[in-house]
């Protein structure tokens, strides 16, 4: 079973990289840009057929290593 994980900085944590990228896009002429947040993306392939079990395992990976929950949020999606 395959999963994707997106890790982004929490809303109230300043994201300077996202800010710079957003400013650059504005300079390039993107007029309707409201906000942009930069994050990290993981593709995870598990030998697990049970989606609940697999998702729980990925959740644990996020909590223990992939994300620092003081400053980051994560989202898990089943992709295959």
């Amino acid at each position: 079973m395959k999963f994707s994980v997106t890790v982004t900085l929490k809303k109230d944590v300043l994201d300077p990289q996202g800010k710079v990228v957003g400013q650059t896009l504005k300079n390039m002429g993107v007029k309707n840009l409201n906000q942009i947040r930069q994050g990290k993306f993981f593709e995870i392939d598990l030998s697990e057929e049970n989606s609940t079990k697999g998702k729980n395992q990925v959740k644990e990976m996020c909590e223990k290593l992939l994300a620092n929950q003081i400053i980051e949020d994560f989202k898990i999606k089943i992709t295959e």
Binding site: V13, L14, P16, Q17, V20, N68, I70, I71
Partner: peptide, 16 residues
């Protein structure tokens, strides 16, 4: 901080 012995976080420097 990452191992939890101290609390908080160290973010990228504000001026990148």
């Amino acid at each position: 901080i990452e191992c939890g012995l101290l609390k908080g976080a160290l973010l990228r420097n504000s001026k990148l």
